[in-house]
Amino acid sequence: MSLKGRDVISIRDLSRSEILEVLNAARHLIPVAEGKKRLETLDGRLLALAFFEPSTRTRLSFETAMQRMGGKVITIADPTVSSVAKGETLSDTVRMLSCYADALVLRHPYEGASRLAAQLSDKPVVNAGDGAGQHPTQTLLDLATMLERFGTLSGLRVVLMGDLRYGRTVHSLAHALGVFGAELVLASPPSLRLPEEVHRDLDQMGAKVREEEHLDRAVKDADVLYVTRIQKERFGDLAEYARVSASYRFDPALLQKVKSTFIVMHPLPRVAEIPPEVDRTPHAAYFRQAFLAVPVRMALLSLILEGRTGARG
């Protein structure tokens, strides 16, 4: 099925072959994202970015993606100065934006906001994060990073580390990795383990999953370490937060024990989970991951708006 005109709210909305279509298209758009080639596939197209909570990185990468493809953007970046501040419902804001633009990218503090927006908008809606809910383009760029480095997702051994309970983006990633036949190793504090419903989802797919509390054992033989931030607001007791977050810091000494091709990923912003010494090693993949946000979003926007990217390959 073509992606043209489609909403992308959750990674579950995309089939395995559609995910690969986006990732493959993104690979061919890298020279355009780098500014080495020009494309005007989205010339004359207008994208509305409605950001109801702050997010510099995601918003700028969508703006960059649209402009690199020759399109233009209109933006609500600060809802405190828009009609939202006057009490307008999200429903009305979405109806208005879908009259103006050819597609809508939404970030909202409430979970399910993008699903609601997609029902109300006759233009495609892309979810750029709804509360602790879904963030499908983050999952796509995470997969793109692994695919670029390893050429495959099937059979990769991926360690998911940190807050696996509340971080819903990690749930989307776990689902997608399960779809592609990667093996998951879960390394989290006992209080922040992957929820039962996500485990069941992975079991239903027949995904290989195991828990490993000790990070040194988890990263040995692993291909990818995906680090997530442990958020202070999840802990009632700050001393407990300090203890847990200190124990889930990536120790650069562990790099002595890993495969030469091993990579460390992080959705950023990081706080102290990965010390800066790791940045200078060939294992650090998080800045490449941040860059790949642009070609992945270029590919997705082009496929949704035009059904093609215009890049050869």
Binding site: T89, L90, S91, Y110, E111, G112, L116, Q119, A132
Partner: peptide
């Protein structure tokens, strides 16, 4: 009624 207090259906939208 969705038990998730952060679900959009619990925030005054006509849905």
């Amino acid at each position: 009624k969705c038990p998730n207090p952060n679900c959009i259906t619990n925030h005054g939208e006509p849905v």
